[in-house]
Simulated assay, not measured.
Amino acid sequence: MPERTHEFGLYGARGIKGHEAVARRLDALAGYIATPITAKRGLLARLHYLTRTDHARAAARAAGLTVTDRTLKAWLDGKRSPSKKNLDRIEQAYRTVRRHNIARYLLARLNREGRGTRVEIHPLNQSQVPRPRQRVVEFRTLNVRHWDRIVEAWAADNLQALDDAWVDQIVDLGSQWGQYEYVTNIGFAA
């Protein structure tokens, strides 16, 4: 079995870790609010999402948004504006709560009752690598049937666990799986 890449990019190859590409795709499927938090509409949308129920407020507090109810009300009424630090906390709490809320739905869609989801793996970019050092790496597809660990690690924002779960899946590519540790893109739909 091949080892993990130790000096990626040494000869000019470009790409990102496979688990980062998977996280980006799951983030896209999560459907975050598109309006930036710096706009009033984006801030209010996030605050409404985090404060619409007692359960949502508890999840926001657990995710790091630890301001008083009075401050939240002032932000919602437009009487005060959050500081840059609090804007970052609101954004982080929103993403954490949204990931947690949508994880079960995504898991059901990706597992598809045991049928799984086809994943397209676009190999790393070797255009800057000298010709003798280039290796033959081609576009691959893989049917991932068990997304449980991947989605759980993504929802918890645990990158190491996500990396381990993704590597466990790409090992199914056979002896060449190490060539797909770094990729330009990973695509799948749910």
Rank of each mutant, 00 (worst) to 15 (best):
G114M: 12
R131T: 11
I170S: 00
V171D: 04
R115F: 05
Q169R: 14
G116D: 10
T96W: 00
E138H: 11
A108D: 12
D148Y: 12
A161M: 11
S127M: 07
E152V: 08
I150D: 01
V151M: 02
E152F: 05
I102F: 06
I121L: 14
F139K: 15
Q128V: 07
I102L: 08
V144R: 13
V129Q: 09
R118V: 12
L162P: 02
R115Q: 14
R135C: 01
G116A: 10
A165W: 03
R99A: 00
A155P: 05
D163N: 14
Y94N: 02
A108Q: 15
Q169N: 09
A153H: 03
R140Y: 09
P123K: 05
H100C: 00
L124Y: 03
A165E: 05
H100L: 01
H146M: 05
R140A: 10
A103Y: 00
R149V: 07
W147C: 05
D157M: 10
Q134T: 07
Y94L: 01
D148L: 10
N158D: 15
P123A: 01
N158R: 15
H122G: 02
E138L: 10
P130Y: 13
N111C: 13
Q160K: 11
D148T: 15
V151G: 02
V97K: 07
Q126P: 00
V136P: 07
L106D: 00
L106M: 03
L142N: 11
W154K: 00
E138V: 10
Q160A: 09
I102Y: 06
D172V: 03
P130N: 10
D164A: 14
I170L: 02
V137D: 03
D168L: 00
P130V: 07
E113R: 15
G174L: 00
L107V: 09
R112L: 08
P132K: 15
N111L: 09
R109F: 04
D168K: 08
Q160S: 10
Q126L: 03
D168M: 02
Y94M: 02
A108M: 10
L159W: 04
R135D: 02
R133I: 06
R99M: 00
V137Y: 01
P132C: 12
G174H: 02
L124D: 07
T96M: 03
D148E: 15
R112P: 02
A155M: 06
V136Y: 13
R104Q: 15
F139C: 07
I170N: 00
N158A: 13
T117D: 04
R112Y: 08
N125S: 13
W166K: 04
E113P: 06
T117Q: 07
D163T: 13
A153I: 02
R145K: 15
L142G: 08
P123W: 00
V171F: 03
R95T: 10
V136D: 14
I170M: 01
H122W: 07
L159Y: 04
R133V: 05
Y94A: 01
L173W: 01
F139Y: 13
W166E: 06
T141S: 14
S127N: 08
Q134G: 08
